[in-house]
């Protein structure tokens, strides 16, 4: 996530909006992601895992938090909402890089 924040200008230039989705409440997001961590993304809260379930991304009883949370996953959508690139990683330590997404974004109209 941090690397995406650092590349935010490039995403803006490419016309790509970055949207973070987690189970965190809007209040927690304001406090921790916007104020403390200084992110400038759009953040959406899915505390009841409705959308996270619809995308089949629930990580049930995650060991560090002990809660049901979202597993890491990234989807690049074109302006029609069609998925043009995605990464649903099999290892927590291998996550999407901004360069990969920007490369995929170059093919979008």
């Amino acid at each position: 996530m941090r690397s995406f924040e650092k590349s935010l200008n490039e995403f803006n230039d490419a016309g790509i909006r970055i949207v973070g989705i987690s189970v965190d409440s809007p209040e927690d997001t304001r406090k921790h992601m916007l104020q403390e961590a200084g992110y400038n993304f759009t953040f959406l809260s899915d505390p009841n895992l409705e959308v996270i379930r619809r995308y089949d991304l629930i990580h049930a009883h995650e060991i560090a938090s002990g809660k049901d949370i979202a597993r890491p996953a990234e989807f690049l959508l074109d302006s029609t909402g069609t998925i043009r690139w995605r990464m649903v990683t099999e290892n927590f330590f291998k996550i999407a890089q901004p360069e990969q997404v920007l490369e995929a974004a170059r093919s979008l109209r």
Binding site: I16, I18, A37, I52
Partner: peptide, 16 residues
């Protein structure tokens, strides 16, 4: 960025 959006990147993450 004041231009029509070309796309959206959804990042699902574990939370803070």
């Amino acid at each position: 960025n004041n231009k029509p959006a070309k796309g959206v990147l959804l990042i699902f993450y574990r939370g803070y």
